Measured scan of single mutants.
Amino acid sequence: PPDDERKKAEKAARSGNEEKAREILERLGYSEDEARELAKRLR
C-alpha cells in the first residue's frame, strides 16, 4: 500500500538516505522535483 511505501521513504530520509527516499517517492507517482523536495522535508 502507498502508506507503507511512504513510511519507508520517511524512514530512509530520516536515516540520511535521501536518494532511496526519493526513489520510493518517485515510484509512488511523485515527479522527480516533488520527490526531492519531499525527501528533504522528511529528513
Rank of each mutant, 00 (worst) to 15 (best):
N17M: 07
D4P: 10
P2N: 13
A12Q: 08
L42Q: 02
L38F: 07
K20P: 03
E18G: 04
A12V: 06
R27M: 08
Y30H: 04
K7P: 04
A21C: 10
E26N: 05
L28P: 00
G29S: 01
L25S: 00
E19I: 12
G16A: 04
R22N: 02
L42I: 07
P1W: 14
S15K: 07
E37D: 08
A9G: 04
D4V: 12
R14F: 07
A39H: 02
K11A: 15
S15G: 10
S31R: 04
L28V: 02
A13D: 03
L28S: 02
A12P: 03
L38K: 02
L28T: 01
S15T: 09
S31I: 01
E37M: 13
R6K: 08
D33N: 09
S31M: 04
I24Q: 02
K40H: 15
R22Q: 06
Y30L: 09
I24G: 00
R14M: 11
E34I: 06
A21R: 03
E34L: 05
K7H: 10
S31W: 01
E18I: 15
A13I: 06
E5F: 10
D3M: 11
A21P: 01
E23F: 07
D33E: 13
D4K: 11
E26F: 06
P1R: 13
A9C: 06
E32T: 11
L38V: 04
A9H: 04
R43N: 06
E26G: 06
E26M: 15
G29D: 01
D3Q: 10
E37I: 13
E32P: 15
L38Q: 02
R6V: 14
L42N: 01
R22H: 03
Y30F: 11
E23R: 13
K8V: 09
E10A: 14
A13G: 04
R36K: 08
Y30S: 01
E10W: 14
E10F: 13
E26K: 15
N17W: 11
N17F: 10
R41I: 07
E34A: 09
A9D: 02
P1D: 14
A12T: 05
D4L: 13
K8H: 11
R36S: 05
R36Q: 05
E19N: 09
R14E: 05
E37Y: 13
E18N: 04
R43V: 09
A21I: 08
A35E: 00
E26W: 02
R41A: 07
K40Q: 09
S31P: 06
A13M: 05
L42T: 02
S15C: 13
A12W: 15
D4I: 13
R41S: 06
P1H: 14
G16L: 07
R43W: 14
A13W: 09
S31H: 04
R41G: 02
A12F: 15
D3S: 12
I24P: 00
K40W: 12
E5R: 08
P2Q: 13
A35H: 02
A21T: 04
A35L: 03
E26L: 15
E18H: 06
A13H: 03
R6Y: 15
E23L: 13
E23A: 12
R22W: 04
D4Q: 12
R27W: 06
K8N: 11
G16N: 05
E34G: 03
E19G: 07
R27I: 05
R41C: 11
G29I: 00
L28N: 02
P2W: 14
E34P: 01
P1Q: 13
A13V: 04
K20F: 10
P2A: 13
E5Q: 10
E37K: 12
R14K: 12
A12N: 04
Y30I: 04
R43F: 15
S15H: 09
I24K: 02
E23C: 15
L42V: 03
N17L: 08
S31Y: 00
A12Y: 15
E19Q: 12
A39Y: 08
R14I: 10
S31T: 12
E18R: 03
R41D: 03
A12R: 04
A9S: 03
R36C: 03
P1G: 14
E32W: 06
L28W: 06
Y30W: 05
N17H: 09
K40G: 06
R14T: 06
D3E: 12
K20R: 10
E32Q: 11
K20N: 04
D4G: 08
K7W: 12
A21Q: 03
R14P: 02
K11M: 15
E34M: 07
E37S: 12
R43M: 12
G29W: 01
R41L: 12
L28M: 14
A39P: 00
E19L: 13
E5D: 11
R36D: 02
G16M: 05
D4C: 12
D3A: 10
R41H: 08
R6A: 08
K8F: 09
D4R: 11
K8E: 14
E23N: 07
R27P: 01
E32A: 14
P2H: 14
A39S: 03
K20H: 08
D3H: 10
E32M: 09
P1A: 13
E34H: 05
L42P: 01
G16T: 02
L38R: 01
R27L: 09
A13L: 07
Y30A: 02
L25K: 00
Y30T: 00
E19A: 14
E10S: 08
K11V: 13
E32R: 11
R41Y: 08
R36T: 05
L42S: 02
K7I: 12
K20V: 12
A12K: 03
K11N: 12
S15W: 09
E5V: 07
G16H: 05
R43D: 01
E23V: 08
A21V: 05
A35M: 03
D33G: 07
A13Y: 05
A39T: 04
E10T: 09
A9M: 04
E18A: 07
E10R: 12
R41Q: 09
E34W: 04
A9W: 07
K40V: 06
R36A: 07
Y30N: 00
L25Y: 10
P2I: 14
I24F: 05
L38W: 06
